[in-house]
Amino acid sequence: MGFKLLSKLLVYLTASIMAIASPLAFSVDSSGEYPTVSEIPVGEVRLYQIADGVWSHIATQSFDGAVYPSNGLIVRDGDELLLIDTAWGAKNTAALLAEIEKQIGLPVTRAVSTHFHDDRVGGVDVLRAAGVATYASPSTRRLAEVEGNEIPTHSLEGLSSSGDAVRFGPVELFYPGAAHSTDNLIVYVPSASVLYGGCAIYELSRTSAGNVADADLAEWPTSIERIQQHYPEAQFVIPGHGLPGGLDLLKHTTNVVKAHTNRSVVE
């Protein structure tokens, strides 16, 4: 069995187990497998329904001669939608809004960016022009300005110390501490036991640490421990890039980060 097929099978099995364990909360999309990078042309966006009122959005972007996937989250909030992270750029984010209108038909009224990198804030200006209120932590807003990236308009308070959590509509926002970046936030959907790890969490097929220019490698494993301790009931975990899975993604990420750190020390 090929690795790609095995990865998709694991996603399907995880979703099936969740649907059985929580039949009222989960209505997993039966329309197909989780979209992969090879299936999404740059400039297009796919939506994948995880649970009743919960979707991931998947886009792709060219970077350094390669094409990478990027995940975000959409959560229903009454007759409105909360968006977590842009679709990595203005063109993708405009396509995301169009796809949401086509498939869901509810307005996106608020959006949260989970850290300051372009795959999370690139497209904020498109959201703002569409009347979406954009939010991020003060740290993310400051770092985005320093980096020359787009800056969300509103500040999220109460997320300055490791372990801080605040309720934001249908989700809980959690600051686990520094990891992929010093400002990275985690998003949890309690009604569906869905954990969105953003770039602080890796997919299972990833074996290298990737972009760690703004990471705190020493603190990252401790931050992941905080996530595990705060959300032990999480059933569906979405990484910032690639295929979702279960809580095993947290341990896998820790292993990859520690291996990278150990290699760096040896070198």
Results as ranks from 00 to 15, higher is better:
R110Q: 15
V146S: 12
R142H: 11
P239Q: 01
E172C: 03
A19W: 14
S205M: 08
A259K: 14
G240Q: 01
Y48T: 09
S264V: 13
A178V: 11
S31Y: 05
H260R: 08
I227R: 02
H154C: 05
K91I: 09
C199K: 00
P232I: 14
S181N: 01
V187K: 00
P69M: 07
L185G: 02
I104P: 00
S223R: 03
V266G: 14
G163R: 10
K4I: 14
V189I: 06
L204M: 09
G245T: 02
S38V: 11
T222E: 12
G158H: 15
Y202L: 14
P244Y: 11
S27W: 09
D64F: 14
L250F: 06
N149F: 14
A66G: 10
E233N: 07
R128H: 14
T207S: 09
L6Q: 06
G169F: 04
R263E: 09
W88V: 00
N184T: 02
A15L: 08
K251G: 11
S160Y: 11
A259F: 13
P190V: 05
N184W: 01
S31E: 09
S191N: 05
T261R: 09
T109G: 13
S16R: 15
P138N: 07
D79H: 15
W220S: 00
A87R: 00
S162K: 07
I84K: 02
T36R: 09
V75D: 02
T207F: 06
L143I: 11
G2A: 09
A21Q: 14
V132S: 04
V166E: 11
L243S: 07
V189R: 00
L5W: 12
W55F: 13
A66N: 14
D214L: 06
T253A: 03
D29S: 09
L97N: 00
T109F: 08
S181P: 02
T140D: 02
R110Y: 06
L81V: 12
G78Y: 10
D118P: 09
E225H: 15
P152K: 02
G123E: 03
E80N: 15
V54E: 03
S27C: 11
P170Q: 06
G89V: 02
S30Y: 15
P170A: 08
K4P: 12
V187Q: 00
F116V: 03
V54G: 02
A178Y: 06
G240P: 02
G158A: 15
R76L: 11
T86A: 14
G123T: 03
A130D: 06
A136I: 03
A129Y: 15
V194N: 00
K102N: 15
E267P: 14
G53C: 04
L250D: 01
T36H: 15
D164T: 09
G122H: 08
G169T: 03
A213N: 12
S38P: 12
L83C: 03
I186Q: 00
F26H: 15
L82K: 00
D79Q: 12
A218F: 12
G122T: 08
V28G: 09
D164A: 10
A66P: 13
L5E: 08
G123C: 03
Y231D: 01
S62Y: 10
S264E: 09
V37T: 12
L82S: 06
A133T: 14
L82W: 11
A21L: 10
L250H: 02
S161A: 12
G2D: 15
T93D: 00
D64N: 15
L106P: 04
L96S: 02
L247V: 08
G242T: 03
V212A: 09
V237R: 01
E157A: 14
V187I: 08
P69Y: 14
A15C: 08
E44K: 08
G32Y: 14
F236Q: 15
K4T: 09
K8E: 07
I40F: 07
L204S: 11
T253E: 01
Q229A: 15
F168N: 00
S191V: 07
P138E: 15
A129T: 06
I100W: 02
G163H: 09
M18P: 05
L143R: 13
L106M: 13
P221D: 13
S191H: 10
A130N: 15
V11I: 05
T153M: 07
P170S: 08
R128P: 03
M1L: 04
A90V: 12
V146T: 13
N211S: 10
L82F: 12
T14H: 07
A90D: 09
L47D: 03
L243A: 08
C199H: 00
T60P: 05
T254I: 08
D79V: 13
A94C: 13
S205D: 06
T253I: 04
D214C: 04
S22T: 15
D183Y: 03
R128I: 12
N149K: 06
E33I: 08
W220A: 02
H260F: 08
N71A: 13
S137A: 13
G53I: 12
A192T: 08
S205C: 04
T222F: 12
N71K: 02
N149I: 15
R76S: 09
T109S: 14
G240H: 04
V146H: 13
P138D: 13
I50N: 05
S62K: 15
Y12H: 06
H154A: 14
S208H: 15
D118N: 05
G89K: 04
G245N: 05
E219C: 04
R128V: 07
Q235P: 05
M18D: 09
V126C: 05
L195T: 00
A51V: 09
S70L: 03
I238H: 02
G246C: 04
E39W: 10
F236T: 10
G169L: 03
V166A: 07
F63N: 15
L106S: 14
E225G: 12
T93A: 01
N255A: 14
E172P: 02
S191I: 07
H260Q: 10
L249S: 03
Q49D: 08
L143E: 10
E157M: 15
Q235D: 10
S27Q: 12
S7V: 08
T109N: 15
V126E: 06
P35H: 15
S162I: 11
N262L: 07
G78D: 11
S139G: 10
R110T: 10
G158N: 14
K91H: 14
E39Y: 11
Y48V: 09
G210F: 03
V257Y: 00
H230G: 11
A21V: 11
K4H: 06
V132A: 09
L127I: 06
V37E: 11
I227H: 02
V146G: 10
H252V: 04
L195C: 00
A178K: 11
A129K: 08
V42C: 08
Y175N: 06
A59E: 11
E33Q: 12
P138R: 10
F168T: 02
E157V: 15
N149W: 10
P107L: 08
S56E: 10
P41Q: 06
V237N: 02
K258A: 10
T36A: 07
A200E: 02
R167I: 13
E44P: 11
L127A: 04
D85H: 02
A111I: 05
G245R: 03
F3P: 04
I238T: 03
G32Q: 05
E219D: 12
E80V: 14
D248Q: 11
P35T: 14
S7G: 06
T261W: 14
T14M: 11
L156P: 04
E203T: 15
E33G: 09
L195D: 00
G105Q: 15
Y34F: 06
P23L: 10
G148Y: 08
L73A: 11
G65R: 09
I238G: 01
Q228F: 04
S193L: 09
Y48N: 08
L6Y: 05
H115M: 00
Q49E: 06
V67S: 07
S22N: 10
Q235F: 04
